[in-house]
Computed example of a mutant assay.
Amino acid sequence: MSIEAPFAGNPYIENSIPVFSRETPFYNLLNDLQTKGWSIQDDFFSTDFTQALMDEVENIHNAYMLQAGVGRKQDHQIVLDARRDYIQWIDPDKPIRKDFLRTMEALRVALNRRLFLGLFDYEAHFARYEKGAFYEKHIDAFKGQSNRILSTVLYLNEGWQAGDGGELVIYDEREPTKEIGRFSPNKGRLAVFLSECFYHEVVVAKRTRHSIAGWFRVNGTIGGALDPDQ
């Protein structure tokens, strides 16, 4: 089976950049989510597609990014002791951003077909951790209190070294004080995990660190209004 079969992604791509170069990471992702609820896959997307996303985030001026906070909508607040990254939500206002969102929509459909997760939509933002920035240990969704089901992080950093910090730390679902592993934010690396199950953190970055953080969600519509995004 070719990679286009599960994703049918290339017809969406306005820039004519091949999105997927190999099928193995996708099937590894499926197996990981089924067996342990989290997955780390290198080179999930093609080199050209990853590079285009990297170019996009690196060209965002700090003035057009927001200080990230904790909580959503009316509960949102800036807590510098908890996190110090800057973000910009991804809207389909540029070709590469539209391509990314359409690609993740194709991934949503593929995951639903194979894992029956009932994923309804996807939201994401670019994230910038400047030197000294971090995100303390947290969970993306509390059980029964959020519509976020799967968290995704795509890393967009060239030549990341062991001493550069900024690693993603994932903790055991049953023993939240026990580390599963530490993963460097290497270019093209994709992390996916169940939002309600895994505490995680970003350790202090020693140089500027970029990523795309996103969430696949279920439909939490109440009174005609979708459970709040962003």
Rank of each mutant, 00 (worst) to 15 (best):
D172Q: 02
V169S: 06
V192Q: 03
L194V: 08
Q161P: 00
R189N: 04
L194G: 06
G188P: 06
W160N: 03
G163I: 07
E173K: 11
R189Y: 12
L190K: 07
Y171W: 08
I180E: 13
S184K: 15
E179C: 11
R182D: 04
L190T: 09
D172Y: 06
E173Q: 11
E179K: 15
E158Y: 06
L168P: 02
A191Y: 03
E196Q: 15
R174C: 01
F193Y: 06
P185M: 09
D164R: 00
V169D: 03
C197I: 00
R189H: 08
P176G: 07
C197S: 15
L168A: 03
I170K: 06
N157M: 11
E179V: 12
T177S: 14
E196P: 00
N186V: 13
N186W: 15
G159C: 11
E175W: 09
Y155E: 02
N157T: 12
L156W: 13
G163F: 00
Q161T: 12
K187A: 08
P176L: 04
Y199K: 13
Y155H: 13
P185Y: 15
G188S: 04
E196A: 15
R174Y: 06
V192C: 12
S184F: 14
A191P: 03
R174P: 00
Y171T: 10
V169H: 10
E196T: 09
K178V: 12
K187S: 13
I180N: 11
E196L: 02
V169Q: 04
Q161N: 10
G166S: 03
K178D: 08
V192I: 13
E175V: 14
D164Y: 00
S184D: 01
E196C: 05
E158H: 11
L168N: 03
K187T: 08
A191K: 05
V192W: 03
P176D: 13
G166F: 03
G163Q: 02
Q161M: 07
I170C: 08
G163H: 00
R182W: 10
Y171H: 08
A162M: 07
E158F: 09
G166P: 04
P185H: 10
P176C: 05
C197M: 09
D164Q: 01
F193M: 11
V192E: 10
Y171M: 04
F198G: 14
D172H: 11
N186E: 13
R182M: 06
G166Q: 05
C197D: 13
S184Q: 10
L190S: 10
G188L: 10
A162P: 04
G159M: 12
R174W: 07
K187P: 01
D164N: 07
A191T: 04
P185D: 07
R182H: 10
F183L: 06
Q161A: 11
F198R: 07
L168M: 09
E173H: 08
T177G: 14
Y155V: 01
Y155W: 11
S184A: 15
G165I: 03
V192A: 11
A191S: 14
P176V: 13
D164W: 00
L190Q: 05
D172V: 09
E175P: 00
F198M: 12
K187D: 04
G163T: 08
E158S: 10
R174T: 08
L194M: 14
F193E: 09
E173P: 00
Y199G: 06
L190D: 07
S195I: 05
E167I: 05
G188E: 03
F193L: 07
G166K: 01
Y155N: 08
I180L: 15
N186Q: 02
Y171C: 02
